Simulated scan of single mutants.
Amino acid sequence: MNRIRRMLGRGCCSTHRLGALCVLLALGGCNDKGEPAAAAAPVVEVTTVSLQPVREWDLFNGRLSAVDAVDLRPRVSGYVERIAFREGDEVQKGQTLFVIDPRPYREALASAQARLARARAAVRLATEQDRRGQALVKQAALSREEGDIRSATLAQGVADVNAAVAEVATAQLNLDFTQVRAPFSGRVGRAMLTLGNLAQADQSVLTRIVSQDPMYVYFDADEQSLLRYIEQTGAGRRPGVANTVRVGLANDIGTFPLTGTVDFLDNQVDPATGTIRVRAVLANPERKLTAGLFARVRLEGASETRALLIDDRAVLTDQDRKYVYVVGDNNQALRKDVTLGRQLDGRRVISSGLAAGDRVVLNGAQKIYFSGMAVEPRENPAPDRQASAASPKPQLAQ
């Protein structure tokens, strides 16, 4: 080795220098005694897996919907005289929203009331004539035929009064309908018709109202989940509050801050999609929820169990197989094929392939070139908290 260095230092010919350099590079991994230098074992981060409490959840996608929603239409025709609300505001049940010109209907009511008064006056006259006629018939001073005519006239007058009463009620109802009121409390949209426009009875849409509290969230559960729930219920493995759901909106990244309960399950599975429609109810006292919003729904599955959990970063892929590296005796990294279960907040349930107490390589697996390679493990404690496993395949509710 020293001779080669002297040759390079004396400036010998290029051919000799190149050959000496190659020999020097070839012997660089050897010590002065000619033995290979031992490579340092790579440092890897490991964590010890253990059984942890897990509560199963299924993850679905859904949409928020108002409990009550209506396109507000007038019940009488007329020109819009007044708009009595501010667009986008929350209104109360019975609050006047639109006023249709009431003058024609007010006059129609007065006319109906006049006809009623005339009919009642006619009944009073017919009553007196019938009373006198019956007395004259008893005295043989009036024919029975004439007495029957007077009785029929009285009956007709009573019928006219009843018809007039109905006309007055209808006219009063139409007059009341000129004030279009909110059928329930909720948030009102924009006014579709403005002042002076003609509103056609039962046709023109004036505005739209949607209720605010509570709110519905609709989602579609796949038939595999449905069959699993039925099986769990029959086996008594469903929790006491089986219909609890957790809901997160689009900006709730990784969290589900809202809590609700399932109150409706459709009566059949849609054969086109293989899903069944489910509905849950959410409280909305602070009006943070709006109909039409996208929602992520976690539906509570079986009761709490215990399972092995590892960080998803430790799972490696070899074509269609999943595996991890486990640090065994003599700090050797050994490959173990695993079967994955449900995903949970960046962690994965291991169905098979690992045992409690195994030390799994969490970081640094790229430094391991073969199974059995020596490593220098550094422990990273695993989080010990209750887990909620969620299904990795959500379904979208339209």
Results as ranks from 00 to 15, higher is better:
299 L>M: 12
393 K>G: 06
129 Q>N: 14
157 G>W: 02
96 T>F: 03
200 Q>V: 15
376 E>K: 09
301 G>K: 02
231 E>I: 01
45 E>D: 15
55 R>P: 01
320 D>W: 02
295 A>D: 04
254 G>N: 10
221 A>L: 14
256 F>G: 02
137 V>H: 05
156 Q>K: 06
222 D>Y: 02
286 E>N: 10
150 R>A: 15
363 N>C: 09
318 D>N: 11
205 V>L: 08
40 A>W: 08
120 R>F: 04
298 R>E: 15
142 L>G: 02
366 Q>T: 13
233 T>E: 13
60 F>Q: 08
251 N>C: 05
55 R>C: 13
368 I>N: 01
57 W>C: 11
66 A>L: 07
390 A>N: 03
48 T>L: 05
232 Q>N: 15
157 G>V: 01
90 E>R: 13
112 A>S: 14
16 H>K: 09
320 D>R: 05
113 Q>S: 14
211 S>Y: 00
259 T>W: 05
388 S>V: 09
189 G>W: 00
113 Q>P: 01
84 A>Q: 08
174 N>V: 05
46 V>Y: 00
240 G>K: 15
397 A>K: 02
344 L>H: 06
367 K>D: 12
88 G>N: 07
359 R>Y: 00
165 V>F: 06
20 A>L: 04
126 A>W: 07
220 D>T: 02
26 A>V: 07
163 A>G: 13
203 Q>D: 15
150 R>K: 15
113 Q>G: 12
92 Q>L: 08
3 R>V: 08
103 R>M: 11
156 Q>M: 10
317 T>G: 06
191 A>G: 10
367 K>I: 04
291 A>P: 04
63 R>V: 13
133 G>T: 05
135 A>R: 08
42 P>A: 06
60 F>R: 04
221 A>P: 01
159 A>W: 06
283 A>R: 10
214 P>F: 07
245 V>S: 02
143 S>W: 07
43 V>S: 11
50 S>T: 11
295 A>K: 05
388 S>G: 13
219 F>H: 02
360 V>E: 01
151 S>G: 08
70 V>Y: 01
186 G>F: 03
10 R>I: 09
327 V>F: 02
285 P>G: 09
385 R>K: 14
355 A>H: 14
387 A>N: 09
297 V>E: 01
394 P>S: 10
11 G>S: 11
262 V>T: 06
280 A>L: 04
142 L>H: 03
72 L>D: 00
298 R>C: 04
97 L>F: 07
156 Q>S: 15
126 A>V: 11
160 D>Y: 00
34 G>F: 06
226 L>H: 01
303 S>N: 11
363 N>M: 10
263 D>F: 10
208 R>D: 04
330 N>Q: 11
289 L>Y: 00
35 E>C: 14
21 L>E: 12
210 V>W: 00
224 Q>P: 00
261 T>N: 09
304 E>Y: 06
324 V>M: 05
99 V>R: 13
353 G>Q: 02
320 D>A: 12
297 V>D: 01
26 A>C: 12
242 A>Y: 09
167 E>F: 06
335 R>H: 01
392 P>Y: 03
141 A>E: 13
201 A>G: 10
308 L>H: 03
238 R>Y: 00
288 K>I: 05
378 R>N: 13
233 T>N: 09
2 N>Y: 07
214 P>M: 04
322 K>Q: 13
181 R>L: 08
27 L>N: 11
107 E>G: 12
1 M>L: 07
239 P>D: 03
212 Q>N: 14
195 L>D: 10
121 A>G: 11
317 T>A: 14
182 A>W: 00
76 V>T: 08
